[in-house]
Amino acid sequence: MLAAPVLLGSGLLTATALAVAVRRLDYERIPQAAVLAAAFFVASLASVPVGPGSVHLILNGLIGLILGWAAVPAILVALVMQVTFFGHGGLLVLGANTFNIAAPALVCAALVGPFMGRVRGGAPLFALGALAGALGVALTGALVALSLALSDPAFLPAAKVILATYIPLLLAEAAVTGGAVVFLRRVAPELLLRRGGSLA
């Protein structure tokens, strides 16, 4: 469905990010990344009610905060699992899908991650998590719409409708990520405060 230049371009970007991420990923951190990739996969199976309908979570903001660069291979692996065992997504758009989800995760890690250690108290922490969740989904929605619009102008109306469907997802994702960040900070602070959370 996407045009070849879009597929090639995003595939190339994904491959580059993947090369950087895999070089930084030492074998010690693979089990942790695998757990997160699996959690990402399982959480995407759950449908969360929003208004009259329900949405499936992406959680790329949270994954970026916890994994940093390792989010790229974790997301790729989860997407490969989704397409081979569930038929969700597509084989040839794997590069584009990975880019559309992993790039926002990296942005969240770079922009929101550094503040994780500085904020105290439940409400500000929830807000920070919610910001990461909202940012992740908003950027993914924008990238998906952009890849459609760049592929063919005939997709423009569809891209607008799809962008609108990301609004309820954004609300749920922000609240869920906020809740998860508050919880993790209380129960397993090392997850959010380690070097993994930033891109350094």
Binding site: Q32, V35, L36, A38, A39, V42, A43, A46, V48, L57, L59, L62, I66, G129, L171, A172, A175, V176, T177, G178, G179, A180, V181, V182, F183, L184, V187, A188, L191
Partner: peptide, 16 residues
């Protein structure tokens, strides 16, 4: 939504 957030967090903590 917040409860689902705790669920996701708990899922990760236990699995890690």
């Amino acid at each position: 939504w917040r409860t689902y957030g705790w669920l996701v967090g708990m899922l990760m903590v236990r699995s890690l």
